[in-house]
Design a protein around this nucleic acid. Structure first.
Lengths: 249, 249
DNA sequence: TTATTAATTGCAAAAAACAGCATTTAAAAA
DNA sequence: TTTTTAAATGCTGTTTTTTGCAATTAATAA
């Protein structure tokens, strides 16, 4: 049997069933497991499937990564996410909210880091699935079409059952005196629950959002433990936050 | 024997069987293996076949466009999804499982259709968010990296709280006598819960999966109400399912 | 934790590819 | 026709690729 035939068969099996065991393939093709392993490794190198411990999975939808090309102020958000990474220790339990900054955080978590991560954001969850050492738990509920996160009573109830080490949240608007505000009532309720579910709440926000407000309030500024912007903590734009009981990063 | 003639024979063999061994050709044509090798090398240079270690394969066999939409058997799955759409009535409540066929179903739901849709699949949920008239509820839980669906006790508990009109499920393997089987224990538990949460269970499966099985059983074949493949219901491949208490579409 | 199962590494045998060379064959020129 | 020339073929020894096996290490499950 030619190597090409064998690899074609392997690909076929993988695509058909989404996942196969190396031992099954070896038996089916009547070759040693070493050969199958080498084939799978090669196919993985060619990006035609993904090798996993003990088998292989189809790329199928596995390589879905939300289009990141038109994210506003990506550079600042990346800088914020980088700072946030410093807070995440191995074996900790965290909760990541929705929004592009939070997606960026999820994307940048190093593959070696082993943590448990709750989220209610679909795009964040997609990113986390790419991390081999992260256990991801999705908080279910009614999905909001524009923010792509779970909202509603069920979501809030689920959040009430957990208490994580760090909760990373975004916000629509933030102001030193008005606190965190949003455009949408449901989102506010959900974010309140996220904050309640976190021992430490970390706000991720680009500086452009500072000193802005909207109609519904999530919380007061000093209910946030840490605020991360892309700016240096002593930047003058952050002056109005320095008096508050809040850590700046 | 002329070189031309020999090369034509080689090409014929390759077209006929998709692949060929150099040693076989050499024996069949009664020439040295070096000659065959040189011929094949030449034909490869002319792009009339692909030379591989130990033999040659036809271009169709080896060719794959890296940019192609890499869902396996997309055409069949689209056909299946189309048939399934016929079952979905306005204002009904449905539950969509994971897998590429289910994603295809979600993708094809017309934008005017207004339904309530539960799902435990991340990619399905992403698709549903694009539909303005669908209320989407994500069943939360621990996310399986391979299958990108919620699994585990929490998922099963959440599923136990609902009863939908139609549950559309996929399966790894299906056999008329062994029923639906899977590679993964957790997935099986989850699918059992999905079936229990559905008044009508509809199995979506391409015909290639028929008569295959794996180690863990989800359910017996007659626990499924309707099975949809890309084939006509009276196709002979479906004969073994006709005796069962199951509707074929 | 321990037990089990995979992955990795190094190695050796077998098969295939390659390069160089000698011989044969086929076509062109005399 | 014969001679010349270039191409084609087969052979030899060497190098590379492929494959399976065994020992060690890593990862996962109980």
């Amino acid at each position: 049997m030619l190597k090409e035939e064998r690899q074609r068969t392997i690909l076929n099996e993988v695509e058909l069933h989404n996942r196969v065991l190396l031992t099954d393939i070896a038996e089916k093709l009547d070759v040693s497991i070493d050969t199958v392993r080498r084939d799978v490794k090669e196919l993985d190198g060619e990006n035609r499937l993904r090798k996993v411990h003990g088998g292989a999975v189809s790329l199928g939808f596995a390589n879905y990564s939300p289009a990141r090309n038109n994210v506003y102020a990506l550079e600042q958000k990346t800088a914020i996410a980088q700072k946030a990474l410093g807070l995440i220790k191995d074996n900790s339990v965290i909760l990541i909210d929705g929004g592009t900054t939070c997606v960026e955080l999820a994307r940048l978590i190093p593959p070696q880091q082993s943590i448990t991560c709750f989220t209610l954001s679909l795009p964040v969850a997609m990113e986390l699935l790419n991390k081999p050492n992260i256990e991801t738990i999705f908080i279910g509920g009614v999905l909001s079409k524009d923010s792509q996160i779970s909202i509603g009573a069920n979501t809030i109830h689920n959040l009430s059952q957990i208490k994580v080490d760090y909760g990373f949240i975004g916000t629509g608007y933030v102001d030193a005196s008005y606190g965190l505000t949003e455009f949408d009532w449901d989102i506010v309720q959900t974010k309140k629950a996220v904050i309640k579910a976190s021992k430490n709440t970390v706000l991720l926000s680009i500086s452009e959002k500072l000193n802005s407000q909207h109609r519904y309030r999530t919380c007061d500024i000093n209910e946030i433990d840490t605020m991360i912007t892309e700016l240096e903590p002593n930047h003058q734009l952050l002056n109005s936050f320095k008096d508050q009981n809040i850590k700046l990063l």
